[in-house]
Write a protein that binds this DNA or RNA. Sequence first.
DNA 1: TCGACTATGCGACATGTGTTGACTAATTGA
DNA 2: TCAATTAGTCAACACATGTCGCATAGTCGA
Lengths: 197, 197
Amino acid sequence: MSAVHSDDPRAQRTRARLKAAVLELAAQQELATITMSALARRAEVNRATVYLHYPDVDSLVTDALEDAVATVARAAALCPLDAPRDRAPLPLEELFEHVAANATTYARMLGPQGSARFAARLRERLTAELAQRFAGGRRPAVWDDVPVEMHAAYLAGALVGVVAHWVTARREHVPTEEAALAFWQLFRSGSRSTTTD
Amino acid sequence: MSAVHSDDPRAQRTRARLKAAVLELAAQQELATITMSALARRAEVNRATVYLHYPDVDSLVTDALEDAVATVARAAALCPLDAPRDRAPLPLEELFEHVAANATTYARMLGPQGSARFAARLRERLTAELAQRFAGGRRPAVWDDVPVEMHAAYLAGALVGVVAHWVTARREHVPTEEAALAFWQLFRSGSRSTTTD
DNA sequence: TCGACTATGCGACATGTGTTGACTAATTGA
DNA sequence: TCAATTAGTCAACACATGTCGCATAGTCGA
């Protein structure tokens, strides 16, 4: 039973180097063109060593972007469900600012050449976080019939869809606040009579 | 200027073989484990020939599933926006039935090991089709502020999110009609006062 | 400080990947 | 039917891919 790759400082250093390397490369070229060999060279790590930590480029890049995923998921879950319809809540605006600041990365990851693993991970984290939020807090009564998990998956997908479309197609044309507001209005179009206590 | 691979019957036959082969293989194994070599063997086509038609497995499988994508996109666009809230419109139910009938395929394609190209294509087609529908027909007045493209991207993402979550996690627990109805209620929660003419 | 891990480096292996050039054979138009 | 066109086959190439066993060196507990 191999106790593979624990908290050994050597392993941590190697993983850090690999994550840095893959982000550098991903900023320059498409994901599919990033080879394990080039990755190993860039990180100054033996090629065989890479496989001790990550089975493929996808897993590596997804792990490297775990912080970004967590940022998005947390921000989404922090939005007060009963915030006014004509103004996006602060966490949502910060979420879109974060995406705007890393627009090329998100565009590359969510595009046709992107990482299915990253997209799935982002949706999964968002769904989990939102479901938890919905289970704990009160949802507006309009949605009482809908299972919490479904609702979370719906919104997670919607956010990923809007973000993907925004960063790829028309980020020049639609400013950040406008995108955030649009998303918020789409979410809020319905429960216009605040919360349900 | 190579007039590459037109409607020559030989090319069509080859492409048909390749599409059939990739779907057969995809039904048995993960996408990442499908090699161009195995594909060529299965389709009884020379390995070099595959590259004359498709640059990678992703492109091939996405092309092979183009009909499925079109089916989903068309069904989504056919839904009458003002259908009653407590009953999913027929096209939407057919959409979910189609997904249920090909659940393993969708699960594989939209999962972590899936195809970013397919997911992007599905969202893109959905977005385009819905945007066209929104532009032509009337949208409920609640959404007047929101750009049509944003709205379409929102819904496209939401549908993909729900489908992905449904087919991967709990298709056993949530029956088809219930999933369709949940999606419909999430969409309809708001514009409860019919259309806006 | 020493001895037991164990992550990493290294070289090698079979296999898969794109690509090329020359040859074969199917298709099409005249 | 014949000639021109072009998709397909085939062999070969340099390179990338996973995966070995073994040697080295960094790490941690005693």
